[in-house]
Design a protein around this nucleic acid. Structure first.
Lengths: 135, 135
DNA sequence: CTAATTGCAAAAGCTTTGCAGCGCA
DNA sequence: TGCGCTGCAAAGCTTTTGCAATTAG
């Protein structure tokens, strides 16, 4: 818990109840990928009185601070994931919504090479595989 | 032009003015990637009287019919691109917004392999490289 | 004490939908 | 002629913002 306060302070954010609660939620949640709405609902269930607007604001701040990564999977809403320092991409099952993480160095390297070849510098990427259970 | 009517009919869509106009727009546009709003604006400029709702409906139908591909780049809105049968991914310049297409067989193959390895079948993917001009 | 932060409600942006009228086949 | 299609306006969703009250340092 002190760690969290550290992280918040390091990010230049005041240690407030909503921020701590949200950070705890992200760390404790079974699902590593949560939408703002899901974070909000879980806070409500835990009887934490935090407004949805605050959830959005805090998640956006966390993103800017690098504590959290935002993904835009198909479906019109963002999902947030705690930054654990291990870069990875995602596989989303189109039937169950299940999210699987993976990392592949070859792909990473190829991306760099492709950007390079076109005269660009890679600043980021988004790779999502849409999959379904093997027949 | 007859080709377009063919395509529409083949997709089970009546050949109507708005649909033909939108299809022409997509074929004629310099930008291969257009948002619904952009399609709408260009239609207005061409003095074509088509409602924005219709643009959305038609693009969605085109997508279902496989005439068009929808992309969700960062930024909360979709962009549409005419399906030309050549699968490719995208590189978006974070400074200029410029979109560059590319295709890489190795990456495609790796994606298949990864999905496979996790017990899934690949149904689609989204790969976007965010880049900036090389320093 | 002072500036940052929060909650609420309202607003914004993109997209979809209901419905009456119009147009293609 | 008949059903599909369109336009308009209204509604829906996620996300953002204004503002007064609250809280951290």
């Amino acid at each position: 818990m002190a760690d969290q306060n550290q992280e918040l302070r390091k990010a230049g954010l005041k240690v407030t109840l909503p921020r701590v609660k949200i950070l705890q939620m992200l760390e404790a949640s079974e699902q590593r990928h949560l939408s703002a709405e899901e974070v909000y609902k879980q806070l409500m269930e835990a009887d934490e009185d935090v407004g949805l607007a605050t959830v959005y604001r805090v998640l956006t701040q966390f993103e800017a601070a690098g504590l959290v990564v935002r993904h835009n999977f198909d479906g019109g809403h963002s999902v947030f994931e705690l930054e654990r320092g291990d870069h990875h991409d995602h596989m989303v099952c189109v039937e169950s919504g299940q999210v699987v993480e993976f990392h592949n160095e070859e792909i990473e390297a190829l991306q760099e090479a492709i950007a390079e070849k076109h005269g660009f510098e890679l600043t980021g990427h988004s790779l999502v595989l849409y999959v379904k259970p093997k027949a």
